[in-house]
Structures are given as C-alpha cells and as structure tokens.
Amino acid sequence: MRKLISRCMVIAFILLGISAYSQAKIKFSSIPNVLQGIEPNDKIDFWVLNYNTYGKDQELKVSGTKKDFIPQTSGFDLFPDEDSFYYIVYSSGGKINYVTDLDALKKFVGKIDNVQEAAILATVDGYMIDEEFKDVAGNYYEDQSNYYLDLGKLTSKECPYQKTHFTLTVNKASGAVTQVKDNGTYIELYNKKCANNPRLLKIEKKRRI
C-alpha cells in the first residue's frame, strides 16, 4: 500500500512539474526575430525581410534564391511611433510582390504555424509586443491546445498617453482568438501639453498659494 501511495505521489509531482513548465512565460526576444519566424503557407520561390532605418535597408532574413527587387520607401511596423519600418519582398510563380502594410502581412502569414505568427496577426488587430515592458506586454506561454500571449495595446493617444496589457488565448488548430483578458493599465505618460498633467497642476497650485 505504501509503495502504491509513493508511486502516486511521484506521478503527481511529475505532472505538477510538467504543468508548471508548460506555463513558464517566455519573453519574445525581439520584433525582428518574431518576423523571422514567419512560415508562409503559399508556395513561395523566395522571400526577404528588410528593415529600413534612416533610408538604409538591412536584410534580416533571406529564404530561397533572392532575385533583384525594388527597394521600398514605406512599410509596416509592429510598434507604433517608430521612425523605421519593415517590408517583405517575395516571389510567387515568378512574380515579385511586396508586403508594405499590415493587411498584406496578414495575408502573407496565412494560417498560424507558430507563436511568432500568432503575435504578428494580433498586431494587425492593434496589439503590440512592447519591447520596453516585456514582463507584462511581451511574453507568452503555451500548452497542447493554445498559445497565451501577453501583449500591450494603446488605449489612449490623448492625455494621458496610456497602455493596457491583455492576455490573448489563441487556439493552435484554428488560429482563432478564443479569449481576451484585460489586465489593466500598465503605463500612463503625460507631456507638457497635457492640461491634466499632475506635475503642471501641482505647479499651478503652488502659484495660487
């Protein structure tokens, strides 16, 4: 009887360990690495991920035999208010195509094959990997059925500038977002033009005194 109880306890601890491991949150390493995780579903001859900053292109990933293409002057970004941008060049059936906006990116990604693609498609819906606050808005964990993404979202572009973080449950089989949990605001920023800036209100109060 004791041996049976001991075996049951060992199995229970193993199952608990597997459960804890499966729910360990992993931070997204960087937005470029997330984009390099794309696995196109359509038949692609080659594709190139480009990063443009200050008017200069940098090829972050080349898949297949690259052909000549025209450098682009605009593209998409997975984080708002950035001066740089990304774009993708790919060839399908011998024809050169360009991905320069989020809708085209969504079409290029197609069916979700991994957690990187799940995060990319969430970006199309206004979410973001916040590289400054990965602990709350730039990580994930997964189990056998779902990806669980902790992502940020701009919920106010006026005063104060506000970010809220959410947990998105993405079904691996269908790619559908089955649940969105609002975890609350994690940052509020005021600038000098904000009439409700607490610092300015304190200064004005002192002046009146």
Rank of each mutant, 00 (worst) to 15 (best):
I5R: 10
I5V: 14
R7V: 15
C8E: 09
C8D: 12
M9C: 10
F13T: 15
F13H: 01
L15Y: 11
G17F: 08
S19I: 07
A20V: 12
Y21Q: 04
S22N: 07
S22F: 12
Q23C: 06
I26N: 06
N33S: 12
G37E: 03
E39D: 09
E39K: 14
D42C: 02
I44C: 06
D45C: 06
D45H: 07
W47Q: 01
W47Y: 15
V48Y: 01
N50Q: 05
N50K: 07
N50H: 03
N52Q: 15
Y54Q: 11
E59M: 04
E59C: 00
E59Q: 13
K61N: 02
K61A: 11
V62I: 15
S63Q: 11
G64A: 06
K67C: 00
F69C: 03
P71L: 05
S74K: 13
S74N: 13
F76H: 01
F76M: 13
L78G: 03
P80M: 08
P80A: 08
D81V: 01
D81T: 02
Y87T: 02
I88Q: 00
I88R: 00
Y90A: 03
S91F: 07
S92I: 02
G94E: 11
N97M: 09
Y98R: 02
V99A: 01
V99I: 12
T100F: 01
T100E: 11
T100M: 08
D101P: 08
L105V: 02
K106I: 01
V109M: 03
G110H: 08
G110N: 10
D113V: 02
D113W: 01
N114W: 11
N114I: 08
Q116T: 04
A118N: 10
I120C: 05
I120V: 14
L121E: 08
V124A: 10
G126R: 13
G126P: 12
Y127A: 06
Y127G: 05
Y127V: 10
E131I: 14
D135L: 11
G138M: 06
G138E: 04
N139G: 04
N139T: 14
Y140M: 06
S145Q: 10
N146Q: 05
Y148P: 04
L149M: 11
L149D: 05
L149V: 09
D150W: 14
D150P: 00
L151V: 13
K153D: 01
L154Q: 08
T155W: 03
S156E: 12
C159T: 06
C159Q: 04
Y161S: 06
Q162I: 09
H165K: 05
L168D: 04
N171M: 02
S174W: 09
S174R: 03
G175M: 02
A176M: 10
V177Q: 12
V177Y: 04
V177K: 12
V180Q: 13
K181I: 13
D182G: 06
G184F: 06
T185C: 00
I187H: 00
I187Y: 00
I187R: 09
E188Y: 04
L189N: 07
Y190L: 07
K193H: 11
A195N: 09
N197Y: 14
N197C: 10
N197E: 09
N197K: 05
R199C: 00
I203E: 15
E204Y: 08
E204N: 10
E204G: 00
K206V: 12
R207K: 13
R207H: 14
R208W: 05
